[in-house]
Amino acid sequence: MAITNPDRSEIKEILATNKRIAVVGLSNNPERTSYMVAEAMQNAGYEIIPVNPVIDEALGAKAVPTLKDIEGQVDIVNVFRRSEFLPEIAKEAVEIGAKVFWAQLGVENEEAYDYLKEHGMTVIMDRCIKVEHALTK
């Protein structure tokens, strides 16, 4: 099926009620987009969980290698990986019971979208969470 994102009012509600974000592909390099976006969300009051097997920490939070290594509930899985990796990440997001799957600007995959929708997950693709947060304030 074609990828359809929630409307702006639904995105506003998602961001107002979901405060724990696992950031897949978060870099510990302040020059990288993933770092800047995650830092902005952290500064806005969100808990950031770095998911990256090649770093120890980012933004003062201990990194985990995979989504399955996170303790407790994850509200939003925010993905900074290339589109071809989305199906694998989508399966992990479903396995951990995340509520929302959010692929960053320029990142989308119809196979992952269909899988997530079949499993009842809210899906947002090809949108920047930082921009959406600013637009819905």
Rank of each mutant, 00 (worst) to 15 (best):
M1R: 11
I3V: 14
T4V: 15
N5F: 10
D7H: 10
D7Y: 06
D7W: 00
S9H: 08
E10M: 10
K12A: 03
E13T: 04
I14W: 00
I14D: 00
L15H: 00
T17K: 13
T17Q: 06
T17V: 04
N18T: 07
K19I: 01
R20N: 08
I21R: 09
I21S: 12
V24Y: 01
V24K: 05
G25N: 04
G25H: 07
L26I: 15
L26Q: 12
S27Y: 03
N28I: 05
N29C: 07
P30I: 08
P30W: 08
E31Y: 01
R32V: 05
M36E: 13
M36P: 01
M36V: 05
V37D: 12
A38L: 10
A38G: 07
E39H: 03
A40V: 02
A40C: 01
M41Y: 01
M41E: 00
M41G: 02
Q42P: 03
Q42K: 11
Q42F: 05
N43I: 02
N43Q: 08
Y46E: 01
Y46A: 02
Y46N: 00
E47F: 02
E47Y: 02
E47R: 14
I48N: 06
I48H: 11
I49E: 06
I49V: 15
P50C: 10
V51A: 11
V51R: 14
N52P: 11
P53T: 09
P53W: 15
V54C: 06
I55H: 14
I55C: 14
D56C: 00
E57L: 07
E57A: 15
E57D: 13
E57Y: 15
E57T: 14
A58M: 14
A58C: 12
L59T: 04
A61K: 15
K62W: 05
A63C: 05
V64A: 13
V64Y: 14
P65A: 15
P65G: 13
P65C: 10
L67K: 00
L67A: 00
K68H: 04
D69Q: 08
D69P: 08
D69L: 10
I70H: 02
I70C: 09
I70A: 04
E71H: 09
G72V: 15
V74N: 06
D75W: 15
D75S: 13
I76N: 11
I76A: 11
N78K: 03
V79E: 10
F80H: 01
F80E: 03
R82Q: 06
S83D: 04
F85C: 00
P87C: 08
K91V: 08
E92Y: 04
E92K: 07
A93N: 03
V94F: 09
V94C: 12
I96P: 09
G97R: 12
K99A: 08
V100D: 14
F101W: 13
W102I: 13
Q104D: 08
G106S: 03
V107M: 03
N109H: 03
E110A: 02
E110H: 03
A112P: 01
Y113G: 05
Y113V: 03
Y115S: 13
Y115G: 05
K117S: 11
K117V: 15
E118Q: 15
E118T: 12
H119N: 15
G120R: 09
I124Q: 02
I124L: 10
D126P: 07
R127S: 00
C128Q: 09
C128S: 06
C128Y: 12
I129Q: 10
K130H: 13
K130W: 07
K130N: 13
V131E: 07
V131F: 13
E132P: 11
A134E: 14
T136G: 02
T136P: 03
